[in-house]
């Protein structure tokens, strides 16, 4: 059960350190039930864009402190509920040049309430190191791996979108909720 939890904990940008050896396994997030969202603040609006159509795989080998996690989301899969705004976002993100956002992790450590995952985020053609906490939540037949982290638009050479000549905040919060089949 603990192995199972770890494997699924690794699932999102997933994650974990685990003391015992397990045989190599591959896990895939459930599309439709999993979601990645971004949140950005503007003095006039709070914007949330959600993607439920992304790939997330975890290769878990014998050394569970070295999980191979790969998440790839197409930029145009994020929906803020307003196509016009999303189209503007795609322009800012140079989506024809950089059509996807990717996260790859290859190490994790167990911490009190979950796992801290270490990896690389590639966004707008810029690769940067990120690390963040993820926590598994178990229900009857599903496990949801939840976590969040902040990035700065300026770190990824992105202009802040403006509305009425007022720019949005530079901080972008990313929320992750990856679902996988439970025990």
């Amino acid at each position: 059960m603990e192995n199972f939890r770890l494997a699924h904990a690794l699932l999102i940008s997933t994650f974990a350190a685990f003391p015992t050896a397990v045989s190599a396994k591959s896990y895939t997030a459930l599309k439709g039930e999993s979601r990645i969202s971004y949140h950005i603040h503007h003095p006039l609006h709070e914007v949330e864009g959600v993607s439920q159509d992304f790939n997330c795989t975890v290769e878990l080998g014998n050394d569970t402190t070295r999980p191979q996690v790969h998440v790839k989301a197409s930029i145009d899969s994020f929906n803020s509920g307003n196509s016009n705004r999303d189209s503007h976002t795609l322009e800012i993100l140079d989506a024809f040049k950089y059509p996807s956002v990717e996260f790859s992790a290859d190490s994790a450590i167990r911490v009190e309430k979950g796992y801290r995952l270490f990896g690389q985020l590639t966004f707008h053609g810029v690769k940067r190191s990120v690390d963040f906490m993820v926590t598994p939540e178990y229900s009857k037949d599903r496990v949801h791996i939840k976590g969040n982290f902040m990035v700065k638009l300026s770190d990824f050479k992105l202009k802040r979108p403006t509305l009425l000549m007022i720019p949005t905040a530079d901080d972008l919060k990313i929320d992750i909720d990856v679902a996988a089949e439970g025990p």
Partner: peptide
């Protein structure tokens, strides 16, 4: 635009 989903906005 780059994308249009047809939702009411």
């Amino acid at each position: 635009p780059m994308i249009r989903r047809g939702e009411w906005s």
